[in-house]
Amino acid sequence: MHFPTLSPGERPNDNHPPYKSTTLRGPRAERVIVRHDFAATSGVAVERSILSANDIDLTKHGASEPLGQAITVSGRVVDEDGKPVRDSLVEVWQCNAAGRYAHAKDDHDAPLDPNFFGFGKFLTDSDGRYRFKTIKPGAYPWGNHPNAWRPAHIHFSLFGNVYAQRLVTQMYFPDDPLFPFDPIFNGISDGAARNRLISRFSLDETVSGTSLGFVFDIVLRGRNATPSGV
């Protein structure tokens, strides 16, 4: 398996002044380019015992239903050849419908929801597919610049099948009016790459009387994986 070089437009610049925290945290030196077996072969074989029944239903973590618009998020995880990334671990986290994280450091003055915590995890199936239920997260303010608000998003952490496929990203929702103002979303300078982080609404995935469906497909780095995957 090998990992073609990303174009500058699809990898956010480590130093992107509009996102202020990059100023002291983004490395300045070029990455050292290297080919090494560990990155391409260290297997990420996850024990299913880490999964609990409700890890794929974030609306079931409290005593009753959380407030907010119930949604499902589903999609397919593939590599750069379009081959499914099977049996791979995905973690998700998000704020509640009011834009507040169940996290000690979140001081946004919006209500916590005693029935929503916003943590999930699951494995992709043998075709790379996943699906989880949650509520649509709210937008929230942050201190980056005056009147700064993050567009609604869900954080994703993906392990792929080998070390070099690791990815942490954020999924957005269609037509968010905050997109033009968000320096994190716009840190990806290529418009097509940026738009790939926006999920699409799907009536097919919408469950009548229950939840709206959003689809978010993910392409992890890597070509020429061995047929067996892991």
Partner: peptide
């Protein structure tokens, strides 16, 4: 240009969600 999904920051609010794996 590939079709790879781009990275975004982990942000400051991951701790509770990821601590199962610490």
């Amino acid at each position: 240009m590939s079709n790879v999904t781009s990275s975004q920051t982990i942000g400051p609010f991951f701790h509770e969600a990821l601590k199962w794996g610490n």
